[in-house]
Every structure is written in structure tokens, then in C-alpha cells.
């Protein structure tokens, strides 16, 4: 019995690190750094959803709402409270966590479709607030976000990098930290409690797991992940509009989660990578973009129910050596 092989945690982290470091060698232009950064930013949000959907087995169709809170915290707090944009990331994370905690208590009593609809409503609520409170948020047109000053800081230290390159590395590091935390959680006592209620809430209760509390914890943790990804998005783009909090973005994030494989951190990043880069590749076929996305989704659901990464891993394992 080999319990102490190279653990899945180390393997995943190594694979991600390699991906992050090797990818830029194939970038023909700095535009690709931007796509890379977007992949890692979405990847972070999707890792958060892996904790909620893959570990705890709960669904959310409103997580883009937390992207919105994270993003607008970075847009509004520096302007009105005078705190630095980087600090505003933490403020946004705190607000998202708090809101998730308040909203999650009543909502997480629901299951399946009911939970999906309730979270959907929550997401739409956030979107409405962001697009209607025009005197604060600039309404549907969006608003500008202050510069972080990080680039200037790097320049003063003698490093000359483009904004895209800088954000590529920042988003990569933040995502790796997110991945590490999610992987820590997976094999920890808390992770086992979450995964147990995924498989059987009844049995989880009988071994002493406070099901409602653990669901709420997963909801709060995933909200914080998503919020940080929203903050990064705002700070990188220097501009934000309510669309990031919209229903479509929630669906996109959830699709990335199940495409890659809802229960694996590596799958989360692959799912984010595919669905973030695909629209860039498909610009040639712009009119068909959504058709192709829909088709891919259907095929994966029909042939690889568990998502890409777990299904492929199974196929590889089954092959005789």
C-alpha cells in the first residue's frame, strides 16, 4: 500500500507552475500575456467554485455578483474612502464574505433547482444595484478604476515590463496561492466534511458534521475567491462595467467549472483556459462563437460527465502499460 506517493497536491501545483512558466515562451505578442492573465483571473474564480460545487456539492448561478462586488470595491473605495486600490481588494473580499454569510444562511437551506434559482436571484440583484446606482457606479456604461501604481513602482526599481506582462505574473501568483489553499482544503478535516455532505447529507449529519454550517463556509470561501478575481479584473482593465456581475458571467464561470471537472483544481484551470481563450480563437467565426461553445458543452456533458480532466485521467489510467 502506497499512501506516500507524490501527492496529488504537489503534482497539481507542479503542473500549474510549469504551465505558467512555459506558456509565455510560445506567446507571439504581448497581447497573449493579457489572455493568459484573464485565464488565471477566471481560473481563480473557478477554483472558488470548485470548493462550492465540486467539494460541497452546492450550486450557484449568482457568483458573478461577488465578481461585481470585488471589482467595484476596487473602483469605488480608492475614490471615496481614499484607500489604495490594492487594499481595496481586501475590502472587497471582506464585503463579499460578509454578504455571502448573510445571504447564505437562508439560501443554503434550499437544494438543487431551488438553490440555483435563489442564487440566480441574488446575482441579478447585485447586477441591478450596480447598473442602477448610476451616481456611484456610472450605471451600465461602467466606470474607470485608479491605477495601482505597481507598474510605476516596478519601473522605479529598474524593471521595465508592460502592463499585460505584469498582470500575467500577478494573476498567476494569486491563482497559485488560491490553488494551494483549495488543495490544502481538499485533504484536510474540513475538506472531508465538505465532501461528505456532497455525497450524503444524511450520513454527514450522523458522523457529526453540522451540514448547514459547512455549506455556509464553502459559500463564503468561494465568494471570497470570486471577489478577488473581480478585483484583479478591475485593476488590470482600469475600467469596470456591471456586465462582470451579470447572469451570463455566472453561467460562464459555472460552465468552466464543470467543463474542467468540478471536483479538481487542475480541471478548474483547464476549464478556465479553454473557455477564456476559445472566444479569442473563434473571433474569425464571431457569429458562431456561442454555437461552438454550446456544442462543446453538450459534447462534454454527454461523453465526459465528470468533466475533461477526470475523464481523461481515467482513460489514461485504464490503458495497459
Amino acid at each position: 500500500m502506497k499512501l506516500t506517493k507524490l501527492s496529488p497536491k504537489i503534482l497539481t501545483l507542479l503542473a500549474l507552475a510549469l504551465l505558467v512558466i512555459i506558456a509565455p515562451m510560445f506567446f507571439p505578442s504581448s497581447f497573449y500575456y493579457r489572455i493568459g492573465a484573464l485565464i488565471f483571473i477566471n481560473g481563480l474564480a473557478v477554483i472558488g467554485l470548485v470548493i462550492l460545487v465540486g467539494y460541497a456539492g452546492q450550486i450557484s448561478l449568482g457568483h458573478a455578483g461577488f465578481v461585481g462586488i470585488g471589482a467595484y470595491s476596487c473602483a469605488l473605495a480608492p475614490e471615496h474612502l481614499g484607500i489604495s486600490p490594492v487594499l481595496a481588494v481586501f475590502l472587497g473580499a471582506f464585503l463579499s464574505g460578509l454578504l455571502a454569510w448573510l445571504v447564505g444562511r437562508p439560501i443554503l437551506r434550499l437544494r438543487g433547482h431551488y438553490l440555483a434559482v435563489a442564487t440566480l436571484g441574488f446575482g441579478i440583484l447585485i447586477y441591478m444595484v450596480l447598473s442602477n446606482e448610476a451616481q456611484w457606479t456610472g450605471g451600465p456604461d461602467g466606470m474607470a478604476v485608479q491605477a495601482t501604481g505597481l507598474k510605476a513602482l516596478l519601473k522605479s526599481m529598474g524593471f521595465k515590463v508592460s502592463a499585460s506582462e505584469m498582470w500575467y505574473w500577478i494573476a498567476a501568483v494569486v491563482m497559485m496561492i488560491g490553488a494551494l489553499i483549495a488543495l490544502n482544503l481538499h485533504t484536510s478535516p474540513t475538506g472531508r466534511a465538505l465532501r461528505s455532505l456532497h455525497d450524503s447529507e444524511v450520513a454527514a449529519g450522523t458522523v457529526g458534521v453540522n451540514v448547514a454550517n459547512y455549506k455556509l463556509s464553502a459559500f463564503v470561501i468561494s465568494a471570497i475567491y470570486t471577489s478577488v478575481s473581480g478585483s484583479e479584473l478591475a485593476l488590470m482593465n482600469r475600467f469596470i462595467s456591471p456586465d462582470v456581475a451579470g447572469f451570463l458571467h455566472s453561467v460562464e464561470l459555472l460552465t468552466m467549472t464543470v467543463l474542467g471537472g468540478a471536483a479538481t483544481v487542475f480541471g478548474a484551470v483547464i476549464g478556465a483556459a479553454i473557455l477564456t481563450s476559445l472566444p479569442q480563437v473563434l473571433t474569425v467565426l464571431h457569429d458562431f462563437e456561442h454555437i461552438v461553445l454550446g456544442l462543446i458543452m453538450m459534447l462534454v456533458m454527454i461523453f465526459m460527465r465528470e468533466g475533461l480532466v477526470p475523464s481523461l485521467a481515467k482513460i489514461l489510467r485504464r490503458r495497459p502499460k
Binding site: 478535516p189 472531508r192 466534511a193 465532501r195 455525497d199 450524503s200 450520513a203 458522523v207 458534521v209 463556509s217
Partner: peptide, 24 residues
């Protein structure tokens, strides 16, 4: 009511929840 997505060992480890305590 087995935790089907866990290993055999993890199923029993999940039963140790109370001795492990809650330290998120």
C-alpha cells in the same frame, strides 16, 4: 449512505469528524 466519491479509508476518516474538530 456511503460517501461514494471518497476512498474506503476516507469514508472512515470522515467518521472521525468530531475528534478532528472544526478549524477551518
Amino acid at each position: 449512505q456511503i460517501f461514494l466519491q471518497m476512498s474506503v479509508l476516507e469514508n472512515v476518516m470522515a467518521g472521525c469528524h468530531l475528534t478532528e474538530g472544526r478549524h477551518i
